[in-house]
Structure formats: structure tokens, C-alpha cells
Design a protein around this nucleic acid. Sequence first.
DNA 1: GCCATCATGTAATTAGTTACATGATTAG
DNA 2: CTAATCATGTAACTAATTACATGATGGC
Lengths: 167, 167
Amino acid sequence: MSLRHAVLGLLTVQPSTGYELTQRFDKSLANAWHASHSQIYPELAKLQDEGMVEVVGEGARRSRTWAVTDAGRDELRRFMTEAEPVRSQRNETAVRWFLVDLLEPADKRKALERELAFCEAELERLTAIAAAIDASEGPKRFRGTVDLGLRMTGVMRDWLQEQLSRA
Amino acid sequence: MSLRHAVLGLLTVQPSTGYELTQRFDKSLANAWHASHSQIYPELAKLQDEGMVEVVGEGARRSRTWAVTDAGRDELRRFMTEAEPVRSQRNETAVRWFLVDLLEPADKRKALERELAFCEAELERLTAIAAAIDASEGPKRFRGTVDLGLRMTGVMRDWLQEQLSRA
DNA sequence: GCCATCATGTAATTAGTTACATGATTAG
DNA sequence: CTAATCATGTAACTAATTACATGATGGC
């Protein structure tokens, strides 16, 4: 189960409230993992029971800021270095791209155009994130990951354009 | 829900038994969707109830070959052309690559090397599939999808090598 | 005062995994 | 004849989504 490790990882980068975590899942981990608040709050409670996270601050609207404990850091390290990676994916976009070959030309073109628009938007989104990191002070962590996303999305865009020009 | 559309798609390409479908999920859709037999058999039954698949042959070991009906083809087309794509992913490997920046150098190098080995293996797997398609007669469907996989995995390998050389 | 958004939670349902179970066929 | 693999199914459990529910705060 990877939800808890994603939570531990995000909280290691930066202590957050449950609400902020839900947003960070869709920003930082948009291409990796999705979790909604109804999953995150119970998971934080479970992690707290197990001593892996703790409340380090309370703010307005009875919000609580969570941080990783030493036990949590140990568990995250164990996951990253010792646990056997689970490689299976669940990616509806990839299913669609696989199945696009089954469509007749007109439908295929329309589908490819929609996907192309998605890639362009994603490139823009990642470019903005990269610029923000570059403009910031400090260690520029995750700049590499953003760069990987940019390269992958670039490959996808090129591929879609080729498919379109042939369709 | 994408399982049923993956099933309809795979059966559109080639009628199969449930057993064959489980294998095709891990071969053709390895980088898109995973489903185990305990999910596939009930889904075939449900699709049959809804008139979207039918038994077109029976073989040894009481195996049954399933094919898509017109209603199934309609549903697949509707999914591909009209349904709003769900973009969220669930990809533990991507989570790991994101979190690798949190590790100290020695752990990081070890983690990157493991991922690099995975990419090399994946490149080999895809190269073999591409060669098989190229050697075959007929329309060479999905050759493009395999090529996309090769390009993406190539980008990943290069990125991992760069990260390693800097770690 | 009221609307948007921040913020947290639970309940009901659906999807997916792991474990259990069984029988048929083929290769050695 | 027996072990491996083919082939199908169900049961128990865990994970995830969708829907329901409530209250706080800040901007207008």
C-alpha cells in the first residue's frame, strides 16, 4: 500500500494539514498517485495511532498541521530501500492511448486531438512549476522530477502529433 | 471504471478466454492497467448480463472464448469518444522516483540503480515485442503504442543515468 | 448577512487484492 | 503417475470513490 508512503513522503518534504495534503497530492503527485480527503484524514489518524506522524501545530478553522516522526522516517526509508517495488499501474489515459488504434479515422483524429490538448496543458503546468523552482532560493528539490515530467510529456506530445499526421 | 473498457478493448482486438485475458493485461497493458483473474471472471459475467460480450467458442479444460457484441462495441466507442477521460494515476514507481530525492546519497544511489535495472529490462521486453510485430504479417496494430513505450522508457533510463552520475 | 472557500470528518458503495478451492490436460 | 500449467470460480478483506454532513473564517 503506497498511500501511506506518499503521505509520509509529502509530510517529510513539508509539514501540512490534511487539507493541504489533498492539494499537494494533485499538484506534486498528479502523475503518480491520487488520494481524496476522505482517504487522507483516516490515514493520518491511523499513522498517528502507529506513531508515524504527529500534530505540530493548530491553526484557524480547527486545522491541524501534521509532521513525520522518527518512526515515520524509518518506515519511509524502509519502504524506499528494502520493500520490493510494486510495478503495476492503473492509468486510464494509457488505456485510451492503447485503444485509440481501434477507432475509425474520424474518431481517432478527434481522440488524438483531445489528448494532444491535454499534453500541451500539462507541459504548461510543468513549465510553470519548473520556473517557480528555478526562481526560488534553497536546494531546488524535485526540480529533477519536474524535468522528467517535462521530458516524458514532450515525448507524448511528439508521438501524438506523429499519430495525428498519419491518421 | 476502466476495467470493463480494457476488457472490451482487448476482446475487440482478439477474442480470448478469461485466462488469456489475464495474461494479455500483464503483457499488452502492463504499463496501463492491471487486473487479476478474480476480477476478470466476474466482470465477464457482468458484461454478458449486459449483453456486451458473448461466448463464441468452447475449448479444452472447459475454457470459453469470449468476443465483443455490437452493444459492447458501441459502449467502447462511447467511452473513447464521449466519456470525459479520468486523468488520475496510481503508479507506485512514480511515487518512488518522486521520493528518491529524500534519501541520503548512498540509499539514493542504490535506489536509482534498482530503477535503472528495471528500465533496462523493460526496454528489452518492449524491443522484443516490437521485433515480433515487425516480423508478423498484417496491419501491425499497436506497433505505435509499443514505440511510445520504448521512447518513454528511454527517457526514463537517460534521466536515471543523469541522476546517478550526480548522486 | 451571505457566499466562497477552508477544513475536517463519516457512511455507503464500488473496486481491487489475496487467499481459498477445484478440476482438466499435457509433458515427462 | 505425477508435477506443471491451464482454466475457472468464490470468499474475505482492504483500498478507494462518492455522497453526506458540519462548522469556521474572510471578503464583499
